[in-house]
C-alpha cells in the first residue's frame, strides 16, 4: 500500500450532485410556468395586448446571445480535455462576455418599461387593470429570477477561469468546469421557454 497524498475525489458524484440541483431548478421554474399558464388562461386578452408591447427583436437577440454562449462553454470543455488551456480560457471569457451582453440588453429593456411607468406597484400600471398587473408582475419576476441565475453563473465562471489559470482545473480534473457548463446550459434552457412565453405568443 502506498500512501495517498491526493485528497479523495469522485467526479461522478460531483456531477450527479449538480444534476440533482438542476432538477430542483427545473421544478422551481416549472412551478412559475404553471402560475403563468393559469393567469394567462384567465386573462387571455390582457396578456395578449401586454405581450405585444415587448420587443421581439431584443428578445431574439438575447436568445441568440445565450445560445452562442452555451456553445462556447461546451467547447471550452473540449479545449481543456485537449490540454489546450489558452483556448479554454478564451472560450470561457467569450461566454462570460456574452452573459454580460445579455444583462446589458435586459437592463435597457427593463429601463424602457420602467421609464413608461410600467413596473410592479406603479399607479400607472394599476389603472390598466388586473391582467396587465399580473402579466408585468410575472414578467419582472420570471425574467428577474432568470437574470439572477445569469449573475450567479457569471460568478461561478469567474472562479472557474481563476482555477484554470492556476492549473487547479486541468485536462485530468475538470468536473468543476463541466458543472459550470451544466448550470449555464440550464439557464439557457429556461430562457428557451421564457422567450416564446413572453415575447412570441401574443
Amino acid at each position: 500500500m502506498t500512501a495517498v497524498s491526493e485528497t479523495y475525489r469522485d467526479d461522478q458524484a460531483s456531477k450527479f450532485g449538480m444534476w440533482l440541483f438542476l432538477f430542483t431548478e427545473m421544478l422551481l421554474f416549472g412551478g412559475l410556468f404553471i402560475v403563468y399558464s393559469v393567469y394567462r388562461f384567465r386573462n387571455a386578452d390582457a396578456f395578449h395586448l401586454a405581450s405585444e408591447e415587448l420587443s421581439v427583436t431584443v428578445g431574439t437577440v438575447n436568445t441568440i446571445i445565450l445560445l452562442v454562449s452555451s456553445a462556447t462553454i461546451a467547447m471550452s470543455v473540449t479545449a481543456i480535455r485537449k490540454q489546450d488551456r489558452k483556448t479554454a480560457l478564451l472560450l470561457l471569457g467569450t461566454t462570460a462576455l456574452l452573459g454580460l451582453a445579455f444583462l446589458v440588453n435586459k437592463y435597457f429593456e427593463w429601463g424602457e418599461h420602467i421609464g413608461e411607468h410600467i413596473y410592479p406597484g406603479s399607479s400607472v400600471l394599476a389603472t390598466r387593470g388586473q391582467g396587465d398587473v399580473l402579466f408585468y408582475g410575472l414578467y419582472y419576476f420570471m425574467t428577474g429570477l432568470h437574470a439572477l441565475h445569469i449573475i450567479v453563473g457569471l460568478v461561478f465562471m469567474g472562479f472557474v477561469i481563476v482555477f484554470i489559470s492556476t492549473n487547479r482545473i486541468n485536462s485530468g480534473k475538470y468536473v468543476m468546469l463541466e458543472n459550470c457548463g451544466l448550470y449555464w446550459h440550464l439557464v439557457d434552457m429556461i430562457w428557451i421557454f421564457l422567450f416564446p412565453l413572453f415575447y412570441l405568443i401574443t
Binding site: 452555451s70 461546451a74 439557457d188 428557451i192 421557454f193 416564446p196 412570441l200 405568443i201 401574443t202
Partner: peptide
C-alpha cells in the same frame, strides 16, 4: 409566430422550444 396561425401558434412555439431544449440536453449537457 409573426404570421397569424390562431391557436396553433402556442403549440408550435412550445414544440420548437421543446425540440431546442432536447438538443441542449443531449449534446451541450452531454
Amino acid at each position: 409566430t409573426q404570421i397569424y396561425l390562431g391557436a396553433l401558434t402556442v403549440a408550435l412555439a412550445l414544440i420548437i422550444a421543446a425540440v431546442k431544449s432536447s438538443f441542449v440536453l443531449r449534446i451541450f449537457m452531454h
